Simulated scan of single mutants.
Amino acid sequence: MKRLTEAEFKSGLLFEEKLPKYIIGTTEGSKYEHKFDRWLYRSIAAVAIFLILLLMPYGFRPYSILVLMIVLATCMLYASEVQGNKFSRSAKPIRIFADRIEVYASLYQRLKGFNGAILVKDVDWVHVERRDAYQLVKRNDMVRLRWAPLELRIKLNDGTEYLTGLKSPAEILAMAQVLKEKLNISVVDTGEGLGRVEPYMY
C-alpha cells in the first residue's frame, strides 16, 4: 500500500492502488503501451471513416472496398472502445477517500454525467471477484493466477454495478479491507488468500 502524504491524509485519501508493471490479463504490457495501442486503433478508425465519407459521393468500385473499410473501422473502434475500456479500467489506479471511491470513467460514461467518483453513501455492497487470469512478469514470461481476487464489483443502491477492472490480488484485498474496516461497506469474498500462481505453459 502506498504511503500517504500529509496533504493526501488531510484530504481524506485512505488508499491509492499501486499498479503492477504489466496489466493483468493482457499481453500488451505496461499502461503506456496500452495507451499507444488504443490511440493507434482510434487513428486507423478515424482515417477509414474519413476516407469513406470523402469517397462516398464518387461511389466505390468495387463495392468490396467499401465493405472492407467499414469492417476495418468497426474492428478498430471495437478494439479501442470496448476492449480498450476494459484494459483502461485495469490501468487506472483506484483511489479511496472518506466520502468517495475514484475509478475509471470512459468517454461514454462521462458524456452521461459520470465523472468516475462513486459516493460511499451510494454503495450497497462490494463483491470480490475471483477467477483465473494470466499476467506478464517480464517480457516473454507469464504466470497463471488461479482463483485469485482480481476485481471488485461495486453495487450501488439504485442497482447499478461497476467493475474495477483486473487488479493485483494483493491490492484487491487491501482495497476490500479499507472499504470494510474504514468505510463500513459490506464486502463479500467467497474465497481466501491470494489464490495460486502457476507457470504459464505456451
Rank of each mutant, 00 (worst) to 15 (best):
R146S: 13
V47T: 03
I49Q: 08
V67F: 04
A117Y: 14
D122K: 10
D132G: 11
P62G: 02
F87E: 14
R130A: 06
V143K: 11
L152A: 07
G113F: 03
S106R: 01
V47P: 01
V137R: 13
I70W: 07
K92R: 06
V103G: 07
C75V: 13
Y134R: 12
P93D: 04
S106H: 02
G116M: 02
A79Y: 12
F60C: 09
L107I: 01
V47W: 06
R130Y: 05
A79D: 11
V143W: 05
L55V: 01
L111K: 03
E102K: 15
R95E: 12
P62W: 00
S106L: 04
Y58W: 13
Q83M: 08
C75K: 07
R100D: 10
C75H: 09
M69N: 00
R89F: 06
A148T: 13
K121M: 12
A91I: 00
Y134T: 02
N85F: 01
V128K: 12
I65H: 00
M69I: 03
A117V: 08
P93Q: 06
L66A: 06
P149T: 03
L77R: 02
F87S: 12
F87A: 09
Y63G: 09
D132C: 06
P93Y: 01
V47D: 00
I154F: 05
L77C: 04
A48R: 00
A98F: 10
Q83S: 08
K112F: 08
V103Y: 09
F50D: 03
L51I: 02
K86L: 10
R144F: 13
T74G: 13
A105K: 10
A133V: 05
Y108K: 04
L111W: 05
V128P: 02
L68W: 01
Q109K: 04
W125A: 14
A98D: 13
A105M: 00
K86N: 13
E81Y: 05
F97A: 11
F87L: 14
A98Y: 07
L54D: 14
P57Q: 13
L66W: 00
L68D: 02
V82E: 01
V123C: 11
S88L: 05
A117W: 12
S80V: 04
G113W: 09
E151H: 02
V126C: 06
V71L: 05
E151R: 06
E129C: 15
L136C: 11
N115L: 08
A105P: 05
R61D: 04
V103Q: 10
Q109Y: 03
T74H: 09
Y108A: 10
E129I: 15
R153F: 10
L55P: 00
A79C: 08
A117K: 14
Y134C: 04
L66R: 10
I101A: 11
D99V: 11
Q135T: 05
K86F: 09
A117H: 14
L53S: 15
R89W: 03
S90N: 05
Q83H: 08
E81G: 00
C75S: 15
E151N: 12
D122T: 03
V123H: 09
Q109L: 11
D99I: 13
W147A: 15
K155P: 00
V103L: 07
V143C: 09
A105L: 00
F50E: 07
F97E: 03
M69P: 02
L156I: 07
R110M: 02
C75W: 09
Y58A: 15
L77H: 02
D122P: 09
R110I: 01
R95T: 14
